[in-house]
Design a protein around this nucleic acid. Structure first.
Lengths: 126, 126
DNA sequence: ACTTGATCTAGAGTTAACTCAAGATAATAC
DNA sequence: GTATTATCTTGAGTTAACTCTAGATCAAGT
């Protein structure tokens, strides 16, 4: 029962360095150790870690993830606060999506413009 | 005819430092100077700059923007290559959007979970 | 002409988020 | 029980993308 840091690095794709760094910085809750100080990750540690990775992927800065994790380790009485943070982040992500979609349109327009230029050049050569 | 670096900073929201940095690094084409070496931005410079900002916002790393700008300054015979790059970036952005939308769902699920926990707690207290 | 504010260059400093190094201890495989 | 491999800590190094500093020159208002 429990995984070593190497196994967790393997399954999450994070490096061992990064895992230790996350723990030191409070980006993830601290992990239990065995008698000689070696980290033993439980299944819940892995789950929290994976959720943290998702938050990171949505562009949440490490400092905010830290705040969230702080609430997490404080227990159930922080759940309402956590809901707030997640809903705020959801709005963030939603507006990121909207902006990216507008950039897709912009890329399309630019490509269209370039194609028009090419078409005109070919016409002239005929 | 032509804007100063300060005006361009104002309208783009980039700092003066950043504008000079972009030019030094080849992230934007170099700008004309007046007799005493002061940058005079033309309308086309502004347009290129704004397009570059968009590319940056889509997460294109500076090194790739540089490549694109390199093609740009080389003239029309690089248009096909530029189309390729932009279409590739469009795909990138599209998959970013997809991933972000899946994260929105994940955030929703987490919030839902938290709400269930809260609901159960209230029930117990009744 | 003089002052004030903008711009110039070269190069150093900053920030976020890792990433690596060194030296020591622990676990595992034979 | 020894060699190999993994893990530990502390602290330094790296990378991308700025951001700032200093000292000098330029431009605009009075």
């Amino acid at each position: 029962m429990g995984y070593t840091i190497g196994e967790i690095a393997e399954t999450t794709g994070l490096s061992i360095h990064t895992l230790r760094y996350y723990e030191n910085e409070g980006i993830m809750p601290s992990v239990k150790r065995n008698g000689s100080g070696i980290r033993i990750y439980e299944k819940t540690d892995l789950e929290v870690l994976q959720f943290i990775c998702c938050l990171k992927e949505t562009g949440m800065p490490v400092i905010d993830i830290k705040k969230f994790v702080n609430l997490l380790v404080q227990g159930d009485h922080t759940i309402e606060h956590r809901i707030d943070l997640l809903l705020k982040q959801k709005e963030n992500v939603q507006s990121q999506v909207n902006q990216l979609m507008s950039y897709i349109q912009m890329l399309d327009r630019k490509v269209q413009l370039y194609k028009t230029i090419l078409a005109n050049k070919n016409e002239c050569q005929e």
